[in-house]
Design a protein around this nucleic acid. Structure first.
Lengths: 98, 98
DNA sequence: AAAAGTGCTTTGTTTTTCAAAGTTAACCAA
DNA sequence: TTGGTTAACTTTGAAAAACAAAGCACTTTT
């Protein structure tokens, strides 16, 4: 029998990164503070997970302004979409051996 | 908006414990070495994850014999089945906001 | 008697997670 | 202009988790 967990992506072992991605799949763009509130995280914790996702090129950062206030938003990349889908497929395959 | 990751079970953050449970859902009983080979783990690593699942009362251990050789097998408990299902439901709800 | 297998436990290292505090830069109010 | 606030981090350090390797008790096989 084949190892059922081998195709899971290590980056998505984290519930937080999983949550970020699941939000980004349905939101074209989302702000730092929105994510922080949705996932109930501290600044540092969120920032570091976002950094991990950015390093992997699964998300992209947009630094801009709302009026003249700084505003950072995040969006998913094509690679991110693909990796996330692959992970969900692997999860599903693992479970639906039923 | 509600925190989408709040309902995920921390015990199932681990890919290995996720793998064990997904195997136990479809196999009434499975041996230590079978699990070890399927998941490609060292003895110690598998044993400690099994221990975590046992502490949570998500799995049950059966110590017995095959012929005269010792043989330890594991099975899922009702609580384990329920918790695993709840986790999968939470995962699905998180993703299918689509 | 020696080697090998089963199922652990122990030990110790590495990795990951996280909160808290500090930081930089821009805004606004008095 | 001084002081307070918000945004978005970075740094620090501690705690937790993951893991491999080795040891162990017991038994079977050679």
């Amino acid at each position: 029998m084949k190892n059922p967990i081998a195709d899971l992506n290590k980056i998505f072992d984290s519930r937080i990164r999983l949550g970020v991605m699941s939000i980004l799949v349905v939101n074209d763009e989302i702000g730092f503070n929105d994510l922080k509130q949705m996932l109930e995280l501290t600044d540092g914790n969120l920032a570091s997970h976002l950094n991990t996702l950015e390093q992997a090129e699964f998300i992209k950062v947009h630094k801009g302004f709302i009026g003249r206030k700084t505003s950072t938003t995040y969006s998913i990349t094509a690679l991110g979409k693909q990796a996330f889908k692959a992970h969900l497929d692997a999860l599903e395959k693992m479970i639906r051996k039923l």
